[in-house]
Protein backbone atom coordinates (compact mmCIF):
# COMPACT_ATOMS: atom_id res chain seq x y z
CA UNK A 1 0.00 0.00 0.00
CA UNK A 2 1.22 3.44 -0.84
CA UNK A 3 2.02 5.56 2.14
CA UNK A 4 -0.72 8.03 2.93
CA UNK A 5 1.76 10.90 2.93
CA UNK A 6 2.75 10.06 -0.62
CA UNK A 7 -0.88 10.05 -1.64
CA UNK A 8 -1.15 13.58 -0.36
CA UNK A 9 1.96 14.91 -2.00
CA UNK A 10 1.25 13.17 -5.30
CA UNK A 11 -1.08 15.86 -6.56
CA UNK A 12 -3.58 15.19 -9.31
CA UNK A 13 -2.22 16.11 -12.70
CA UNK A 14 -2.98 19.80 -13.10
CA UNK A 15 -2.63 19.67 -16.86
CA UNK A 16 -5.73 17.54 -17.11
CA UNK A 17 -7.91 20.36 -15.88
CA UNK A 18 -6.20 22.94 -18.07
CA UNK A 19 -8.91 23.49 -20.58
CA UNK A 20 -11.29 26.33 -21.21
CA UNK A 21 -13.25 26.87 -18.04
CA UNK A 22 -16.95 27.47 -17.99
CA UNK A 23 -18.34 30.40 -16.03
CA UNK A 24 -19.41 28.13 -13.22
CA UNK A 25 -15.96 26.60 -12.95
CA UNK A 26 -14.38 30.04 -12.89
CA UNK A 27 -16.68 31.07 -10.07
CA UNK A 28 -15.74 28.02 -8.00
CA UNK A 29 -12.05 28.61 -8.62
CA UNK A 30 -12.27 32.19 -7.36
CA UNK A 31 -14.37 31.01 -4.43
CA UNK A 32 -11.76 28.39 -3.57
CA UNK A 33 -8.87 30.84 -3.60
CA UNK A 34 -10.75 33.40 -1.54
CA UNK A 35 -11.57 30.74 1.06
CA UNK A 36 -8.05 29.34 1.06
CA UNK A 37 -6.55 32.79 1.61
CA UNK A 38 -9.08 33.58 4.34
CA UNK A 39 -8.20 30.35 6.15
CA UNK A 40 -4.52 31.14 5.65
CA UNK A 41 -4.97 34.39 7.56
CA UNK A 42 -6.75 32.61 10.40
CA UNK A 43 -4.02 29.99 10.62
CA UNK A 44 -1.16 32.46 10.53
CA UNK A 45 -2.69 34.92 13.00
CA UNK A 46 -1.27 33.61 16.32
CA UNK A 47 2.25 33.36 14.92
CA UNK A 48 1.91 36.84 13.48
CA UNK A 49 0.85 38.11 16.90
CA UNK A 50 3.83 36.38 18.53
CA UNK A 51 6.36 37.81 16.10
CA UNK A 52 4.96 41.33 16.00
CA UNK A 53 4.62 41.68 19.75
CA UNK A 54 8.03 40.23 20.47
CA UNK A 55 9.50 43.25 18.72
CA UNK A 56 7.73 45.84 20.83
CA UNK A 57 9.89 45.59 23.93
CA UNK A 58 9.02 44.25 27.38
CA UNK A 59 6.56 46.80 28.71
CA UNK A 60 3.98 48.82 26.88
CA UNK A 61 2.63 45.94 24.86
CA UNK A 62 -1.15 46.21 24.85
CA UNK A 63 -3.91 44.00 23.64
CA UNK A 64 -5.74 46.70 21.72
CA UNK A 65 -2.71 47.13 19.49
CA UNK A 66 -1.81 43.43 19.38
CA UNK A 67 -2.35 43.18 15.64
CA UNK A 68 -0.44 46.33 14.77
CA UNK A 69 3.14 46.37 13.58
CA UNK A 70 5.65 47.84 16.04
CA UNK A 71 6.41 51.50 15.51
CA UNK A 72 10.09 50.85 16.07
CA UNK A 73 12.00 47.62 16.44
CA UNK A 74 12.83 46.82 20.03
CA UNK A 75 14.63 43.56 20.71
CA UNK A 76 14.89 44.01 24.47
CA UNK A 77 12.18 41.40 25.12
CA UNK A 78 14.25 38.78 23.30
CA UNK A 79 17.24 39.32 25.51
CA UNK A 80 15.19 39.30 28.68
CA UNK A 81 13.12 36.28 27.68
CA UNK A 82 16.25 34.30 26.87
CA UNK A 83 18.46 35.23 29.81
CA UNK A 84 16.16 36.53 32.55
CA UNK A 85 17.15 39.35 34.81
CA UNK A 86 17.06 39.33 38.61
CA UNK A 87 17.93 42.98 39.16
CA UNK A 88 15.14 44.66 37.21
CA UNK A 89 12.62 41.83 37.31
CA UNK A 90 12.83 40.10 40.68
CA UNK A 91 10.42 37.30 39.77
CA UNK A 92 12.38 36.45 36.67
CA UNK A 93 15.53 34.76 37.88
CA UNK A 94 15.80 32.48 34.88
CA UNK A 95 14.74 33.07 31.32
CA UNK A 96 13.98 30.53 28.67
CA UNK A 97 17.58 30.04 27.59
CA UNK A 98 18.82 27.59 30.18
CA UNK A 99 15.61 25.56 30.04
CA UNK A 100 15.69 25.42 26.26
CA UNK A 101 19.28 24.23 26.13
CA UNK A 102 18.44 21.58 28.74
CA UNK A 103 15.39 20.52 26.76
CA UNK A 104 17.44 20.33 23.62
CA UNK A 105 19.79 17.77 25.15
CA UNK A 106 16.92 15.74 26.61
CA UNK A 107 15.09 15.72 23.33
CA UNK A 108 18.08 14.86 21.16
CA UNK A 109 19.10 11.99 23.40
CA UNK A 110 15.62 10.55 23.62
CA UNK A 111 14.99 10.79 19.88
CA UNK A 112 18.25 9.06 19.02
CA UNK A 113 17.63 6.20 21.45
CA UNK A 114 14.00 5.94 20.36
CA UNK A 115 15.00 5.69 16.72
CA UNK A 116 17.44 2.84 17.35
CA UNK A 117 14.94 0.88 19.44
CA UNK A 118 12.14 1.58 16.96
CA UNK A 119 14.20 0.39 14.05
CA UNK A 120 15.10 -2.94 15.69
CA UNK A 121 11.54 -3.55 16.88
CA UNK A 122 10.07 -2.52 13.55
CA UNK A 123 12.35 -4.92 11.72
CA UNK A 124 11.32 -7.83 13.92
CA UNK A 125 7.59 -7.06 13.70
CA UNK A 126 7.75 -6.67 9.92
CA UNK A 127 10.28 -9.20 8.70
CA UNK A 128 11.36 -11.46 11.52
CA UNK A 129 8.10 -12.34 13.21
CA UNK A 130 7.77 -14.75 16.11
CA UNK A 131 4.72 -16.63 17.26
CA UNK A 132 2.25 -14.10 18.64
CA UNK A 133 4.20 -11.12 17.35
CA UNK A 134 1.09 -9.53 15.88
CA UNK A 135 -0.64 -9.67 19.23
CA UNK A 136 2.40 -8.23 20.98
CA UNK A 137 2.48 -5.46 18.42
CA UNK A 138 -1.17 -4.60 19.03
CA UNK A 139 -0.48 -4.55 22.77
CA UNK A 140 2.35 -2.11 22.06
CA UNK A 141 0.01 0.09 20.03
CA UNK A 142 -2.44 0.44 22.88
CA UNK A 143 0.38 2.06 24.85
CA UNK A 144 0.35 4.84 22.28
CA UNK A 145 -3.21 5.87 23.01
CA UNK A 146 -3.42 5.62 26.78
CA UNK A 147 -3.83 8.80 28.78
CA UNK A 148 -0.48 8.97 30.56
CA UNK A 149 -2.27 9.99 33.72
CA UNK A 150 -3.08 6.30 34.11
CA UNK A 151 0.62 5.50 34.68
CA UNK A 152 1.76 8.81 36.09
CA UNK A 153 1.47 8.37 39.83
CA UNK A 154 3.35 5.04 39.92
CA UNK A 155 5.87 6.51 37.49
CA UNK A 156 6.53 9.43 39.80
CA UNK A 157 6.90 6.96 42.67
CA UNK A 158 9.47 4.90 40.78
CA UNK A 159 11.33 8.02 39.71
CA UNK A 160 11.46 9.27 43.28
CA UNK A 161 12.47 5.92 44.79
CA UNK A 162 15.32 5.49 42.30
CA UNK A 163 16.39 9.11 42.62
CA UNK A 164 16.01 9.48 38.86
CA UNK A 165 13.83 12.53 39.32
CA UNK A 166 16.89 14.51 40.37
CA UNK A 167 18.31 14.37 36.86
CA UNK A 168 17.04 15.16 33.40
CA UNK A 169 17.42 11.46 32.52
CA UNK A 170 14.02 10.84 34.02
CA UNK A 171 12.51 12.67 31.05
CA UNK A 172 14.82 11.01 28.53
CA UNK A 173 13.68 7.68 29.89
CA UNK A 174 10.00 8.61 29.87
CA UNK A 175 10.12 9.81 26.27
CA UNK A 176 12.02 6.73 25.16
CA UNK A 177 9.74 4.23 26.90
CA UNK A 178 6.43 5.83 26.02
CA UNK A 179 7.75 6.52 22.52
CA UNK A 180 8.39 2.82 21.84
CA UNK A 181 4.90 2.17 20.36
CA UNK A 182 4.87 4.98 17.82
CA UNK A 183 8.53 4.53 16.81
CA UNK A 184 8.05 0.79 16.38
CA UNK A 185 4.92 1.45 14.34
CA UNK A 186 6.61 3.91 11.98
CA UNK A 187 9.53 1.57 11.34
CA UNK A 188 7.29 -1.48 11.02
CA UNK A 189 5.17 0.27 8.38
CA UNK A 190 8.27 1.30 6.54
CA UNK A 191 9.85 -2.15 6.60
CA UNK A 192 6.60 -3.77 5.51
CA UNK A 193 7.00 -1.88 2.24
CA UNK A 194 10.44 -3.37 1.62
CA UNK A 195 10.03 -6.43 -0.65
CA UNK A 196 10.61 -9.81 0.99
CA UNK A 197 12.80 -10.81 -1.96
CA UNK A 198 15.56 -8.63 -0.58
CA UNK A 199 15.54 -10.63 2.63
CA UNK A 200 15.35 -13.89 0.70
CA UNK A 201 18.34 -12.86 -1.37
CA UNK A 202 20.27 -12.30 1.81
CA UNK A 203 19.23 -15.68 3.14
CA UNK A 204 20.36 -17.43 -0.01
CA UNK A 205 23.75 -15.90 0.64
CA UNK A 206 23.58 -17.49 4.10
CA UNK A 207 23.51 -14.19 5.90
CA UNK A 208 22.06 -14.18 9.40
CA UNK A 209 19.04 -12.02 10.10
CA UNK A 210 21.17 -9.59 12.12
CA UNK A 211 23.53 -9.38 9.17
CA UNK A 212 20.62 -8.80 6.78
CA UNK A 213 19.38 -6.07 9.07
CA UNK A 214 22.75 -4.39 9.19
CA UNK A 215 23.74 -4.65 5.55
CA UNK A 216 20.46 -4.62 3.65
CA UNK A 217 17.76 -3.05 5.78
CA UNK A 218 19.62 -0.39 7.71
CA UNK A 219 21.05 1.41 4.66
CA UNK A 220 17.50 1.65 3.29
CA UNK A 221 16.08 3.01 6.53
CA UNK A 222 17.17 6.64 6.34
CA UNK A 223 13.72 8.06 5.50
CA UNK A 224 12.13 6.18 8.40
CA UNK A 225 14.89 7.40 10.71
CA UNK A 226 14.20 10.97 9.67
CA UNK A 227 10.48 10.52 10.31
CA UNK A 228 11.03 9.03 13.77
CA UNK A 229 13.71 11.52 14.77
CA UNK A 230 11.51 14.45 13.80
CA UNK A 231 8.46 12.95 15.43
CA UNK A 232 10.22 12.26 18.70
CA UNK A 233 11.98 15.61 18.62
CA UNK A 234 8.72 17.47 18.17
CA UNK A 235 6.63 15.53 20.64
CA UNK A 236 9.32 15.46 23.33
CA UNK A 237 10.03 19.15 22.88
CA UNK A 238 6.33 20.00 23.17
CA UNK A 239 5.70 17.63 26.05
CA UNK A 240 4.24 19.23 29.13
CA UNK A 241 2.53 16.39 30.95
CA UNK A 242 5.60 14.27 31.76
CA UNK A 243 7.67 17.32 32.58
CA UNK A 244 5.16 18.83 34.97
CA UNK A 245 4.65 15.55 36.82
CA UNK A 246 8.20 14.24 36.87
CA UNK A 247 10.27 17.38 37.36
CA UNK A 248 7.97 19.99 38.80
CA UNK A 249 9.13 21.84 41.87
CA UNK A 250 12.69 21.59 40.68
CA UNK A 251 13.59 24.72 38.71
CA UNK A 252 16.95 23.17 37.86
CA UNK A 253 15.13 20.62 35.72
CA UNK A 254 12.62 22.96 34.06
CA UNK A 255 12.13 22.27 30.38
CA UNK A 256 10.98 24.70 27.70
CA UNK A 257 7.25 24.20 28.18
CA UNK A 258 7.25 24.14 31.98
CA UNK A 259 9.53 27.17 32.09
CA UNK A 260 7.23 29.05 29.73
CA UNK A 261 4.25 28.11 31.85
CA UNK A 262 6.06 29.29 34.97
CA UNK A 263 7.21 32.51 33.33
CA UNK A 264 3.83 33.50 31.92
CA UNK A 265 2.14 32.47 35.14
CA UNK A 266 4.41 34.51 37.38
CA UNK A 267 4.45 37.67 35.29
CA UNK A 268 0.90 37.44 34.03
CA UNK A 269 -0.87 40.62 32.92
CA UNK A 270 2.25 42.64 33.36
CA UNK A 271 4.76 41.94 30.63
CA UNK A 272 2.94 40.68 27.58
CA UNK A 273 5.86 41.54 25.35
CA UNK A 274 7.92 39.14 27.40
CA UNK A 275 5.26 36.43 27.38
CA UNK A 276 4.88 36.55 23.63
CA UNK A 277 8.62 36.48 23.05
CA UNK A 278 9.05 33.52 25.36
CA UNK A 279 6.25 31.63 23.61
CA UNK A 280 7.85 32.38 20.27
CA UNK A 281 11.23 31.17 21.52
CA UNK A 282 9.71 27.86 22.63
CA UNK A 283 7.98 27.44 19.29
CA UNK A 284 11.01 28.21 17.13
CA UNK A 285 12.93 24.89 17.24
CA UNK A 286 9.97 22.75 16.21
CA UNK A 287 8.87 25.35 13.67
CA UNK A 288 12.29 25.38 12.07
CA UNK A 289 12.29 21.59 11.87
CA UNK A 290 8.81 21.74 10.36
CA UNK A 291 9.80 24.30 7.75
CA UNK A 292 12.68 22.19 6.50
CA UNK A 293 11.35 18.67 7.02
CA UNK A 294 7.58 19.11 7.10
CA UNK A 295 7.06 16.24 4.68
CA UNK A 296 8.53 13.81 7.17
CA UNK A 297 6.57 15.34 10.03
CA UNK A 298 3.39 14.69 8.05
CA UNK A 299 4.36 11.02 7.74
CA UNK A 300 4.77 10.77 11.49
CA UNK A 301 1.40 12.43 12.05
CA UNK A 302 -0.35 10.05 9.71
CA UNK A 303 1.34 7.06 11.32
CA UNK A 304 -0.07 8.27 14.60
CA UNK A 305 -3.51 7.60 13.22
CA UNK A 306 -2.43 4.07 12.20
CA UNK A 307 -3.25 4.99 8.62
CA UNK A 308 0.39 5.25 7.68
Amino acid sequence: MTHAAELITAKPDLRKIKRIRTGKEKFWLVFKYVSLIFIWFLVIMPIYVLVVNSLKGVKGVYLNTAFQLPTSLDFSAWKLAWAGDTTKFPGLSAGMGAAMIRTFFIVVQSSLISAVIGSINGFVFAKWKFRGSNLVFTLFLFGMFIPYQAVMIPLVRVATLTGLNKTTYVLVLAHVIYGIPICTLIFRNYYESIPNELIEAGRVDKASMTRIYRSIILPLSIPAFVVVLIWQFTSAWNDFLFAIFLTSGNPKLAVATTQLNFLTGSTNQVYYGLNMTAALLVSLPTLIVYVFLGRYFLRGLLSGSLKG
Binding site: W40, I47, A279, Y290, F297
Partner: peptide, 16 residues
Protein backbone atom coordinates in the same frame (compact mmCIF):
# COMPACT_ATOMS: atom_id res chain seq x y z
CA UNK B 1 0.77 26.46 6.31
CA UNK B 2 -2.42 24.75 7.42
CA UNK B 3 -0.46 22.00 9.11
CA UNK B 4 2.15 24.00 10.99
CA UNK B 5 0.08 24.42 14.18
CA UNK B 6 0.50 20.70 14.85
CA UNK B 7 4.25 21.27 15.25
CA UNK B 8 3.83 23.85 18.02
CA UNK B 9 3.23 23.09 21.66
CA UNK B 10 -0.17 23.69 23.19
CA UNK B 11 1.57 25.55 26.00
CA UNK B 12 3.11 28.12 23.64
CA UNK B 13 -0.13 28.59 21.75
CA UNK B 14 -2.00 28.73 25.04
CA UNK B 15 0.08 31.78 25.92
CA UNK B 16 -1.12 33.56 22.79
Amino acid sequence: FYLYPMAISFIAMGTV
